[in-house]
Amino acid sequence: MNQLQNFTKGFIKENPVFILLLGMCPTLGVTTSAVNGLGMGLATTFVLVMSNLAVSLIKDFIPDKVRIPAFIVIIATFVTIVELSMQAYTPALFESLGLFIPLIVVNCIVLGRAEAFASKNNVLSSIIDGLGMGLGFAFALTLLGSVREFLGGGAIFGLKVIPGDLMLVFVLAPGAFIVLGYLIAIINRLRKA
């Protein structure tokens, strides 16, 4: 597999949200607006890239049996770094993402990529894999956030397109499930076509 394929697979073919169906909690929980989705996606991308990098660097020094605990420590470290930095430099976004920032640590995508890819591949491939997967995740969250923000409030990225509120249910909990369900159905259909 060349590096370009390695990079782009996260967008469509192996999109973590739409195809692999991983990381559903933040996907549903933070996507009340496009900005929140993008912010969460980028934060996760950072953790993914950095933990992939770290894991691929030290993979040969880690005994097999303590592999997973070591990975968890590495991931948790980067999550905390993101947490602290966001609190310092983007406090508003930090507040609206809330609980889901520390929960990046249990996002199956991050541990999954560390275990399935970075622990078996070289540094460059691992970084590119993390970047591709992360951006694919960010893309999915931004798309979901945009749809919900538009259907719920008639706006995209905070810009009012239609005056007044539309269907409030889409910014509430049920809307998250419904929109994601139909998005996956549409993507399944497009893939088959």
């Binding site: 269907m167 409030l168 509430l172 049920p174």
Partner: peptide, 8 residues
Amino acid sequence: VFLLISFP
């Protein structure tokens, strides 16, 4: 219920 929550 959808309408009630969407257009209270």
